[in-house]
Amino acid sequence: MIEVDGVRKAFASRVVLDGVSVRFERGRVCALIGPSGGGKSTLLRCINGLERFDSGRVEVDGLVLGPSSASARPGEAERATLRAIRLKAGMVFQHYGLFAHMSALENVMEAPIHVRGVPRAEARERAAQLLARVGLSHRRDAFPRELSGGEHQRVAIARALAMDPEALLLDEPTSALDPDRKAEVTRVLADLAGAGVTMLLVTHESAVVREIADRAICLREGRVVADGAPSEVL
């Protein structure tokens, strides 16, 4: 459902992605691993258009994104494609992803109401269900600054799920957490994997890879250097 074809990306003179081609299947959980600076996060950000690339193409469920220069402002058609792709591929960030001025519940309700036009009451009910699913019913009125790191990431996952994405892109969702918090987030991800949610996960942690991924891809210096079952790649 996600196809990356010959994507090349350089920041100034440093090549971050050097012709990456890879396909991700629906219903599978794929981990992107490899050393820092290997291009994992950049690949994830290229897939949902937060980062533009110099050549190659990205296709998400039939929507095609081509190369573009960083300085050029995208036209209306391209912006519409970007938004459509982002609705199909929800994203969870490593840091500061939750809207700081809204409670946990409001964070989850925000996009359904203002992007999808879901009625407020309906969005609230759905958000409450999603918070229950990640085990945070009791924290719905807390603000991001009052949440622990693990709770923070679980709200971020619920928020991404609220838009009913075809896939979840997770950028190091556990790396800033202590072991207990890691376990609590990993458990939520494992539940989702069990429920058949397509996930693309950037991580440093082999434990997480083993527990929830059914495929691992190792990126090094902008190239895919290994691709297979987690046990083989790790």
């Binding site: 960030f93 500061y96 809207f99």
Partner: peptide
């Protein structure tokens, strides 16, 4: 933080909506 705008864009918001709903309320505070 830049991640606030990116999170909003990643949820399918237009830049204008993201500014209005996410960035400006925090910036003005």
């Amino acid at each position: 933080p830049r991640a606030q705008l990116e999170s909003a864009l990643a949820l399918g918001m237009t830049t204008r909506l993201a500014l209005r709903r996410v960035v400006l309320p925090q910036a003005l505070r």
